[in-house]
Design a binder for these strands. Structure first.
Lengths: 133, 133
DNA sequence: AAGTCATGTTAGGTTTTCTGACATGAACTT
DNA sequence: AAGTTCATGTCAGAAAACCTAACATGACTT
């Protein structure tokens, strides 16, 4: 729920832009959606609108495809990754509960300053950071 | 010529997205282009494609319009700002020429680490940072 | 009252995207 | 070898988004 997450999940890009950014064809992108690897938002007029997160995900998918992983495999990988992230979040919360107020303040301040070190997982993955600072 | 500048000037957004991001109408955006306050790129099919810089600029324009400045005024402001930025760049280069190698290394390292403090001018201006970290 | 400015509105045309269907080649299975 | 499955290509018809150009309008200026 950080501001950053909101920004990264804001639906902004039509499929044409995503095609260029990812070097995937429209057909591929729609196919991956069909297999529920991504779930881009839609405009009122039913056009897909992709977020930065979606694009990251597509770049990950591309990478995995290149390495020979199939749809089912990718879906599983995403699932595992998701679980891992959840656990880590739980762990975070738990640790926070154990902190004194002073420690908490320091921690929050750190999170705000250079927010998000966790979250970028260890998988070799898509990286849109080259598009935005 | 920093990577960041390249990213910020990459044409990504169709006019519909820009409308939502800036809360300007298509008519307004085209009008500002007509008066050369912005120069969005075009696709092969002649559709406008806006960069983050374009959007920043549109937000600045909106701000200035709200403050009663007209097209000519905004154009002048942009001109002045541009000149100012150029001068500052010249100044930078000059200062660099006067540095020892060691000083230069430190300076460059700094520029790379948190690049771009200069460049965001002092004008109250559009801010897209709320969309991207 | 006439003119200018910024924007709205409309019209006709072009481009982009949508879904669904069928085609294809590579990799597996039998 | 013949048949499947998978990932993607290609095509068609429809809908949405965008384009330019023109005219309309209301708020200011002169």
């Amino acid at each position: 729920m950080s501001g950053k997450e909101i920004r990264r999940s804001m639906p902004l890009f039509p499929i044409g832009t995503v095609m260029q950014l990812t070097e995937l064809t429209a057909r591929q992108i729609r196919y991956y959606e069909e297999h529920q690897l991504i779930s881009p938002a839609r405009t009122e007029g039913n056009r897909r609108l992709f977020s930065l997160n979606d694009i990251d995900r597509l770049l990950e998918i591309k990478d995995l495809i290149d390495q020979g992983v199939n749809m089912a495999g990718i879906k599983q990988l995403f699932l595992v990754k998701q679980q891992h992230a959840n656990e880590q979040e739980q762990q975070m919360k738990k640790e926070k509960r154990e902190l004194t107020d002073e420690q908490l303040r320091k921690l929050l301040r750190n999170e705000l300053l250079h927010s998000g070190r966790l979250n970028r997982s260890s998988l070799r993955q898509g990286d849109l950071s080259r598009f935005f600072h």
